[in-house]
């Protein structure tokens, strides 16, 4: 006991430290094995295969240059998927953020039914998006028996061909995506709102700031870390979107709501078109990287301006 009580907490080079290094190496083995087998090698293969074409009968791989990339940018199905994914990611991020911040600010006040509203909104995002997509598929059914159409009919309006029309189907997917995500992000903003020191508001009130000024000069700057996290989660999830459009519309009508992920699965796994699937995967990884770096830079510069 005396020895440990007197032992310096500063790490000394020596026998103990070396044994620690050896132990550390062993403890890192599992994660390094998983990383190498499941991430690093497949990532390299994706990059390599994106320049090749596989002959399924002979198993031979031939180098085809950028042919697969040309296919991605000329095939209408794939191209529609790329655009829809980008549009979904942007709209979902912007609209959820614009809705979630004011709603969280209101829910941060005391009023009757607050906890109930919070819990209910939050729970909407808890079930699997795949199941929610299927439920909404029936609600949006283009038939007269669809929920929305029967409500429209009951107030004397015409039925709309919801999921059978390209634009309406896109709107439906974006709408359900927002509906499912907003509760989560309200909860995230609430967590940060509760951490804003109350004396900032007291000070602002003493200084005669109007509620509007308080919102823009106290609340919003204090929420910058929350906005950074929330928009990061939204945009990466938006780019990866697959289960919601797939279960709601199946990617249709035609390819109107096709996504990059759905294309990768259909081409790369379903049709064993490894070349095109891999080219999509590489472009997807690059797009994700650009978004992550860009978002980090943007939020850094915003944070600097406000501090």
């Amino acid at each position: 006991m005396t020895r440990s009580a007197f032992s310096p907490t500063v790490r000394r080079p020596g026998r103990l430290n070396r044994s620690n290094q050896i132990a550390a190496t062993w403890f890192l083995m599992p994660i390094l094995a998983i990383f190498t087998i499941l991430l690093l090698i497949p990532l390299g293969q994706s990059a390599l295969w994106s320049f090749t074409e596989l002959n399924l009968y002979t198993g031979e791989m031939t180098f085809v240059g950028v042919d697969n990339y040309v296919t991605v940018f000329t095939d209408p199905a794939l191209l529609t998927g790329v655009w829809f994914t980008l549009g979904f990611a942007i709209l979902n991020t912007v609209i959820v953020t614009v809705l979630a911040i004011p709603l969280a600010v209101v829910l941060n006040n005391a009023f009757f039914g607050r906890d109930f509203s919070r819990a209910l909104l939050f729970f909407l995002g808890v079930p699997s998006l795949a199941i929610l997509g299927l439920v909404w598929r029936y609600i949006f059914s283009p038939l007269d028996s669809g929920v929305i159409n029967s409500v429209l009919n009951s107030v004397g309006l015409q039925s709309l061909p919801w999921l059978a029309d390209a634009d309406l189907a896109r709107i439906a997917v974006v709408f359900v995506g927002i509906w499912a995500a907003v509760g989560w992000h309200i909860t995230l903003y609430l967590a940060y709102l509760q951490a804003i020191p109350a004396d900032l508001y007291e000070q602002a009130t003493v200084d005669g700031a109007s509620p509007r000024q308080q919102f823009f000069n106290v609340t919003l700057p204090q929420l910058i870390p929350a906005i950074t996290v929330s928009t990061f989660l939204l945009i990466t999830a938006g780019l990866r979107v697959y289960d919601l459009p797939f279960t709601l519309t199946g990617g249709g009508p035609g390819y109107a709501t096709n996504t990059i992920t759905q294309s990768i699965i259909e081409r790369g796994v379903g049709q064993s078109d490894f070349g095109v699937g891999s080219a999509l995967a590489v472009l997807f990884a690059i797009a994700t990287l650009i978004v992550i770096v860009g978002q980090m830079r943007l939020s850094n510069s915003v944070a600097r301006r406000y501090s």
Binding site: L38, P42, S46, I264, A281, A285, I292
Partner: peptide, 13 residues
């Protein structure tokens, strides 16, 4: 590794 999306490794996996 954290930044690699699942989609990027799906086909080889």
């Amino acid at each position: 590794a954290f930044a690699i999306p699942l989609q990027a490794t799906l086909v080889p996996q």
